[in-house]
Structures are given as C-alpha cells and as structure tokens.
Write a protein that binds this DNA or RNA. Sequence first.
DNA 1: CCAAAAGTGTTCGAATTACACCCATGA
DNA 2: TCATGGGTGTAATTCGAACACTTTTGG
Lengths: 233, 233
Amino acid sequence: MEIYPKSSKHYVAVDCIIFGYDILDKELKLLLYKRTFDPARGSLSLAGGFVNAKESLDEAACRILTKLTGLESVYMKQSYAYGDTDRDPGDRVISVSYFALIPVRDINKDLARQNGVSWYALSGLPKLIFDHNDMVRRALSELQTQIRIKPVGFELLPEKFTLVQLQDLYEAIYRRKVDRRNFRKKILSMGILEKLEEKEKETSKKGAYYYKFNQDTYLKLKQNGFYFNLDVN
Amino acid sequence: MEIYPKSSKHYVAVDCIIFGYDILDKELKLLLYKRTFDPARGSLSLAGGFVNAKESLDEAACRILTKLTGLESVYMKQSYAYGDTDRDPGDRVISVSYFALIPVRDINKDLARQNGVSWYALSGLPKLIFDHNDMVRRALSELQTQIRIKPVGFELLPEKFTLVQLQDLYEAIYRRKVDRRNFRKKILSMGILEKLEEKEKETSKKGAYYYKFNQDTYLKLKQNGFYFNLDVN
DNA sequence: CCAAAAGTGTTCGAATTACACCCATGA
DNA sequence: TCATGGGTGTAATTCGAACACTTTTGG
C-alpha cells in the first residue's frame, strides 16, 4: 500500500565517521574501509550502508558500527544529511552521517580486519570517496565544539585515565598545546572526576594517578544548571 | 539503470521550521500549515514536501520556502534528519528538517494565505502532526545556540532596526530579560553595527536611532579571529 | 644521583556583572 | 509640564592567562 504514490523514492544510506583515540601515539584516528575490489580498488571510504525498510536511521548506524567493531554501546550522534543529486556517481543516494567515539583499543581487531576496516591517522588523511572528506571535516568540527562543552572526551579514553592522557586528548583534538596547570585546575574544579588510588606507571617513573569520569555526578550538576566548559589557553 | 538494486528505497521529505519575529508584539512565531481536508483536518504541521528525484535536499527546502513565502534569499540551515520507521503513520518517510529565519513582515501575505500557511506564536504552540513538535524543539534549541555565537539575529529583523528592537529579539529568544546597558555596550563594542542618522519615532517620543548590521565588517573581523558572542546577563 | 615525567599556586589584566539617573519630545 | 521610552558610566567581582619550581622514582 502506497499512500504517496506520486513522489520519488530514494536510496538512503548512513555513513559512520568513527573517531578513535590512541593514548600511545596521542593521535586521533578514523576507522576506514579500503575497497579491495574494482571500481576504485584501494580507495578509502567511511563505514556505510543502506538503510533498510524496517529500521530507523539510528538503528542503521548502530548496525553498521556493531558489525565492524563488535561494540554495542558506543557514543554516537547524527551529524548531517548529504543530499546532492550527484554526490554518488553510481546513483542518487542521500546519506546521513553519524559520528562515533571509541577508544582505539576497544574494538574487536579480528572483526575489523575481517570487515576490511582499519585505523588511519586523521592528520594527513588521503582523499576518500564521494563527499566523505566533507563528512569528516564537518564531524571533526562538531567534535571540536562538543568536546569543549560536553563531557564527550571520556568516550575516547579507557575508563581509567590519567590527567596527562586527558590533556593529550584535548591537545590532539584542539590541535594546540594547553597549559597544564590551568587545564588541571579547570577540569578538577568541575568535580566530575574521581581520583583513584591506582597509578599508571608505564610512561613515567613517578607514575600518574588514574581518574575516572563520574557520569552520575555530572548529571546531577547539570540538572542544577552546571555547564561543562573546557576552554583553556 | 539501477546500480544498487538490492536496497530499499524510501520517501524522503523536507520540513521547514520557519521562524519569524514580529517587532510589534515582540514574539517569535512559526509559519505553519493548517490542514483543510481530512484526515487530520484542522491540525497543524510544518511546511514540508517530498524531495524530487533531481533536486538536492537544500534545493527542496528552498523550493518549499519560496513557494509559501515568495522569498528567495533567506537564511536557511539544515537541522536534523528524522528517520523513525513509524514517524509518519501513513507510510515510512524519512524527513530532513531545515530552519529558516525571516522577519514576519517580509513574507508575501497573499501567497501565504493562498497556500494555507500563517503565523503562530511559538509560546503555547499546540500539538503538531507526527514528530513536528520535536523538530521545532530541536530547531529552537539550535537557534538559541546560534544567536549567541553568530550574527543570525539580524535575519529576523528588518534591515534597519533599533537597539531596543534587537534587544527585544534576544529577550524573546533567550526567554529572559537582559540588562540594557550591558547589552548595548557589548553589541556596540563589536563594531559590526552601523548607526544611521534616521530615527524610529513610532514607539516613543524621543525616538531611537536606527542601526544596520554591516556584514562586510563582520566577515573581515571574523577572518582576523574575531568571534561573535552575545552572552549577556 | 640524575633524568624524566607528574604535580602544584600566585599574580595580573580583562571581562562580566550589578546598578540609577538624565535626556528628548509629543501631547 | 509631564509621562514615556531612549540613552549613558562606574565600581566590584570574577574569570582566564601567564608563568617556574618541587616531587617522585627507576635505572
């Protein structure tokens, strides 16, 4: 039964901009798919797929992400709908992009390899297919905005992290250095981090205390009018 | 010729959240369509329509806006893609929402009437069809964010406006009072307003100077690292 | 004992807030 | 002349920026 029989129907895809952060080389990465077949063999694309008749956009994005990484509960957010008629040279496809944040080490490596996806540093990213570079640019810009005003950076880190690691992450995303003392002062003054007894001892002799993000405290503060803000010099 | 024959195709619509500001009653309004036929006769909806095979999403949104208002160059921005499978009870329709900003007095009233659309105050908005209330909520929230950090408020005002009118607009969108002296100090210190010789004399005996927004100056400042910000107490 | 990374406070200037009185004019 | 809305300045406080030394410990 078709109620709107006069209108055109369209292919609708979702493309996932999967950001990963590697605490070791302190770089923001993207999980990309390398085509192993013609046409465009060897060229890179975002992880994407068509939206099925019986799933929502969000469901389609989650399905693709889970299929590639094995991860179920990941931070994911819709970014933008791309609808130029000629954006896909094959056929007219409207694509809704989503961006996801995951710690690089969390993904199921076998599953990723099996699916032909792997991590690529965001700096020096090559040309991706179609308008995927635009999608990345927009999503990165959104991430840079979000991470200032929402506690989403923690999604890119392991549950336990040091303040140095957190700062490295912000520097990687802001693409500039920030003052260590001011950064610590500001993030600690929010009262949303919980200091653990345990220390991380791999990267220094002295060792750095682990912290973890306290979501409950954050939500309570937010209800009382608190706004996360991590603008630092 | 179909390259992706195994995938589902979908109806794709655009819905326009058309914000208008009325300098007389100082209220933010929405241009809504009232159904004059069954089913759901008398219920309100956003201005929307299906995306044609040969037009982009942006083009579809502009087409709808122009058809209803007669306006060609209007501030319009994509908001969000709504894709729940049952959001439209008639059939599965994916809808991309756009929000537009126009001064209430600018629209072609005859055209609007002819098309069955008219202005409704945003406060006390009734239930709209489908998920259109969600669309409005999200767009309003984006507008409240945007108007703080980008000079988009001027899109809702006539070319010439007084500082009182500008402040009234901000108060209507922020939904709170702001201090007159601080507001003026801040907006004038940006140096993006041009004071005219002419005065507006309808609402007061003394009269208030007209100003206009200088887009060129703004763009130059922006290139030099200036960020518009109108957070005021 | 020393290299390497973690951790810590204070000062200064800028920006934000709070706040109240005079001005111009038409009726 | 007076009622109405337009226009203006200053002091107090808060917030962000700049900046350098001490601590810990494994090798």
